[in-house]
């Protein structure tokens, strides 16, 4: 074990953690919007809209994230027509390609989590709102969505951790995130074990933080209060 290397690589890896956190927060933000949108589409009675939303979530949950990120980065980059459109401004950057892949992936899982949360809301609650003369729009935004969010916190917490781990694949499209920098250090020191242990420790610490924040939120918003 080269402890010196572990000490010297720690600050470099910590610096790269910023990139990882940026990727994570951007993907979660956009993913939540897409997830909510598709969860609502899933509840739509129109069979085509419903099937479309299901198809999206099935496609992204049924394939590995690595394939998705490769299709978006290397695959779409090959389409000449795409390169002449304004989309290329975004797709040109590996950073945005990674965020698009992560967003679509987490969006699919989030839509499933929210959908099942919506479906477990007791009909009585909605009826109670209706009998009080509250419009169904307000019921949806002020009652159903908050309950669904609370309901889905534990599952969503898991999804955040899965996504945080998933960002390590950004290194496969040249991004210098935590894993990317770890690989770079290894390429000059040839000592994978030491560097990966330090990087793994940082990931583990982030998991720990996310886990506890979610636990805290769960407690804070529990119904039994």
């Amino acid at each position: 074990m080269d402890f010196d290397l572990m000490f010297t690589s720690f600050p470099k890896l910590l610096g790269a953690t910023v990139v990882t956190l940026k990727l994570l927060s951007a993907s979660l933000f956009f993913g939540l919007i897409i997830g909510l949108l598709f969860a609502i589409l899933r509840l739509n009675k129109n069979i085509f809209i419903n099937k479309f939303a299901y198809g999206y979530s099935y496609l992204f949950r049924g394939t590995p994230l690595l394939v998705q990120i490769f299709i978006i980065y290397f695959g779409l980059g090959q389409i000449e027509y795409l390169r002449s459109t304004f989309l290329w401004v975004i797709l040109k950057e590996p950073y945005w390609c990674a965020i698009i892949a992560f967003t679509l992936n987490t969006g699919a899982y989030t839509s499933e989590i929210l959908r099942s949360a919506f479906q477990t809301i007791k009909p009585g609650i909605i009826e109670a709102g209706k009998s009080l003369g509250i419009s169904s729009k307000i019921i949806f935004y002020k009652i159903q969505i908050p309950i669904a969010i609370r309901q889905s916190l534990p599952a969503y917490g898991n999804e955040i951790i899965l996504m945080m781990k998933g960002t390590s694949l950004a290194s496969t499209v040249t991004l210098m995130d935590l894993t990317g920098v770890a690989k770079y250090i290894i390429s000059t020191t040839f000592k994978p074990i030491e560097v990966f242990i330090v990087a793994g420790g940082i990931y583990l610490f982030m998991t720990f933080i996310i886990h506890n924040v979610i636990k805290f939120l769960e407690k804070k918003y529990s119904f039994s209060q």
């Binding site: 290397f74 980059g77 090959q78 390169r83 290329w88 040109k92 590996p94 496969t172 040249t174 770079y184």
Partner: peptide, 18 residues
């Protein structure tokens, strides 16, 4: 500098304009 896993990928992105 942008570093790729293989030379194939470098060539692809040289062609794509990245």
């Amino acid at each position: 500098v942008r570093a790729y896993k293989t030379q194939d990928e470098v060539n692809l992105d040289l062609t794509s304009g990245r």
